[in-house]
Nucleic acid binder design. Structure first.
Length: 491
RNA sequence: CGGGAAGUGGCGCAGGUGGUAGCGCAUCUGGUUUGGGACCAGAGGGUCGCAGGUUCGAGUCCUGUCUUCCCGACCA
């Protein structure tokens, strides 16, 4: 293993891949495009899950679980939905293996062909709406507010750890409502849940917006999204929430009887975030020394490293360290005391830096004499000496400060990388250098959007919700426009 | 899926024109060390991605296949 990471300036993409592997987050497996999430990476995902799950429940949702396999016929029921996913589905055609008659391992038993093929879910709208038909008869059965934590499979051609894998972990919320207004409200509420989670916990500033028709989810009437800006100036969609109208209710014949006794189709939403958030986390905060984790997601917020010669000294240090561990844990802070004698302090320093542990406390013989510890911040790489008796008071405040400072830093970066383009030349130049978000006028047509994409690789990330109306002319066609939309190259 | 590159101990790599595999890091043992990836001495570990083929002989040549990386089209 090489000692140093490729730097972001040398090769951003290589930096990302090396970081994921060296920080022990994930690795590629023997299966094309499918990753192994390692314990340290999974611990971060678990923290993401736990906080989101709490927020979902606080907004009235419950978890359920639907099958991995979906009968092929379900997919033919909603036309635009099929169009969106057909090209990337894994299909189960047989249910049995047998020994190879030629003696080489096993082969698929041709006699075990399924009557109807099963699709490994790329998303669960179809099977969930097929089930909701049984659950819903009356307006009294509504709303249904359900989420599921699951894995899904999309047969992507080009994959990257966390950012795009053939199988990924996510949550998908699927709700059913009596009215259009209520469904739209739900989709907007969940967008807020995502935005506040990503900003407060992941310390990643996001733009809230709606997708253009061309970028909309397959089967949705409106797609709301949060968009984040990565350090290389490319945008990453961090979460989406869809207002599905009555499309799935109509496709799966899900009706309810109203108070007035009429039969109406149910209104739907779906919303999801995935392990891609891990990619956003890495690319927002990390530096050339490795991962930088916001304290609210760090598996260990503090690591304590003893520096010692001989057992006697270690015992004396351990006494101080264990006391600090108790004091910090009492405040709900996660601490690891790494007293392994199999690695040297310098090795540990580098390892925890690579893994993004927010605070490191080193205790050595000099500290024993002075009653101090060395406290090092991962985000700023600064060190200070703190009296042992002050640690319990200083650490929580410092963790808060790191959390805030990471967000502020990311926000400042985004602001510096947010531009306004008023001419095609200006626009092209900004996009060419991956300058970040570019606000520009657009005539509102999918044709223009596609053409801009062909010419520059930039897509409309969103129409920001907070947008102000402004008269202008489309950057490409010169046709009138009422507002600016946000363009960027995207992951 | 189209174009390019690559798969050799755990990791990173070297192995003109075919002749039975080597280096660095890591690992193990012993000793000295420990405030930013320690040092010395010794040791173990590879059917060269996989499957065929050519050949007296294949890491090396040929065919197929799988995986990874880069560039496109698609996408959370």
């Amino acid at each position: 293993m090489g000692k140093h990471l490729t730097t972001r300036a040398e090769d951003y993409s290589k930096w990302y891949n090396e970081l994921v592997v060296k920080a022990d987050l994930a690795q590629n497996s023997g299966v094309r495009g499918s990753m192994v999430i390692k314990p340290y990476g999974f611990a971060i995902w678990e923290r993401i899950q736990a906080d989101l799950d709490r927020r979902f429940k606080e907004t009235g949702h419950m978890n359920a679980y639907f099958p991995l396999f979906i009968p092929k016929s379900y997919f033919s029921k909603e036309a635009s939905h099929v169009d969106g996913f057909a090209k990337e589905c894994a299909v189960v055609t047989h249910y049995r293996l047998k020994n190879d008659p030629d003696g080489n391992g096993v082969v698929v038993d041709p006699n075990a062909k399924l009557e109807e093929e099963l699709i490994v879910r790329p998303t669960s709208e179809t099977i969930i709406w097929d089930t909701y038909r049984d659950w819903i008869q009356s307006y009294r059965d509504l709303p249904i507010l359900v989420n599921q934590w699951a894995n899904v499979v999309r047969w992507e051609m080009r994959t990257r750890l966390f950012l795009r894998t053939a199988e990924f972990l996510w949550q998908e919320g699927h709700t059913a409502h009596a009215t259009k207004e209520e469904a739209i409200q739900e989709a907007e509420t969940m967008l807020d849940v995502y935005a506040s989670f990503v900003e407060e916990i992941m310390a990643i500033p996001v733009l809230r917006g709606i997708k253009t028709e061309g970028e909309r989810f397959a089967g949705a009437l409106e797609t709301y999204c949060i968009e984040a800006l990565m350090q290389d100036g490319k945008a990453l969609q961090a979460g989406t929430s869809h207002f599905l109208g009555q499309n799935f209710a109509k496709a799966f014949d899900v009706k309810f009887q109203t108070k007035e006794g009429t039969q109406e189709h149910v209104w739907a939403t779906s919303w999801g975030v995935s392990t891609r958030l891990m990619g956003a986390l890495i690319m927002t905060h990390s530096d050339d020394n490795g991962l930088v984790l916001p304290p609210k997601l760090a598996p260990y917020q503090v690591v304590i490293v003893p520096i010692y010669k001989g057992q006697e000294q270690l015992d004396a240090i351990s006494e101080v360290a264990n006391d600090l561990v108790q004091q910090l844990r009492a405040q709900g802070i996660t601490v690891k005391y790494d007293d392994r004698d199999t690695q040297k302090p310098g090795w540990k320093f580098n390892q925890y830096e690579l893994q993004g542990v927010p605070l490191r406390i080193a205790i050595g013989p000099k500290d024993l004499e002075k009653g101090s510890v060395e406290l090092a911040r991962r985000d700023t790489l600064t060190k200070q000496f703190v009296s042992q008796s002050d640690v319990a008071a200083v650490v929580p405040a410092l963790l808060d400060e790191i959390q805030n400072s990471l967000f502020e830093k990311a926000l400042k970066f985004r602001e510096e990388r947010t531009h306004v383009a008023n001419s095609w030349e200006e626009f092209e130049a900004l996009i060419k250098e991956s300058a970040g978000f570019v606000y520009a006028h657009w005539d509102g047509t999918t044709e223009t959007e596609d053409k801009i994409k062909d010419l520059t690789k930039a897509t409309i990330r969103c129409i920001p919700i907070s947008n102000e109306e402004e008269e202008g002319a489309c950057i490409l066609t010169g046709k009138p426009s009422k507002q600016r939309v946000v363009f960027a190259k995207a992951y």
